[in-house]
Amino acid sequence: MEKFNTHKGVVMPLDRHNVDTDAIIPKQYLKSISKTGFGPTLFDDWRYVKAGEPGMDHSKREIKEDFVLNQPRYQGGSILLARENFGCGSSREHAVWALDDYGIRAVIAPSYADIFFNNSFKNGLLPLVLSEDDVDALFKAVEANEGYELTVDLEKQQVVTPDGETYSFDVDEFSKYCLLNGLDDIGLTLQHADEIKEYEDKRKIEAPWLFA
């Protein structure tokens, strides 16, 4: 997993609430058995005029000019600004892989759906939470200033605006540690293999039908 320390990038405003994972990556692309290559089909239905299929040359498809990812001023963006309950719907991690493959390193929103939130950390994508008012202020700033960039500092848990204004955010210690160090949490869990075995031994006596 890629480490996340500080990241500076152009902000793309996606002004919709309850953005669901079907919108982030439509199901026809879930047939892949690999984790990469989902970037060109991120937000596929909103981004292109006609529905796409896996295996197409997406660079040749007709785009919806006014969709945020297609606007010249947001090209190369790597921070997505979103509204409440971002990532609701299915458990598909493909949604995170698509954001990541597109080049997005952080999402800023007032709230997320639980599974999406959890999946993001596992892939080095930082889903950070700011208050609704702060997010609103950022939407206004992004729309008013072309090329608007933010700096996300995970160590300090701060978002820094071009004027040096800062917004603090909370992040759970364990997730922060894993992200800062690019750590695979399976390795971390396996350090506790003895405790897992001990638990199993106890459970086999208490509830043997679970092991039948």
């Binding site: 984790k35 598909r92 599974i115 959890n118 999946n119 596992k122 892939n123 399976i186 869990t189 396996l190």
Partner: peptide, 12 residues
């Protein structure tokens, strides 16, 4: 759960 967690449960 997401796919990373599927892997996590498989392994641990």
């Amino acid at each position: 759960i997401g796919t990373s967690d599927v892997e996590h449960v498989l392994a641990t």
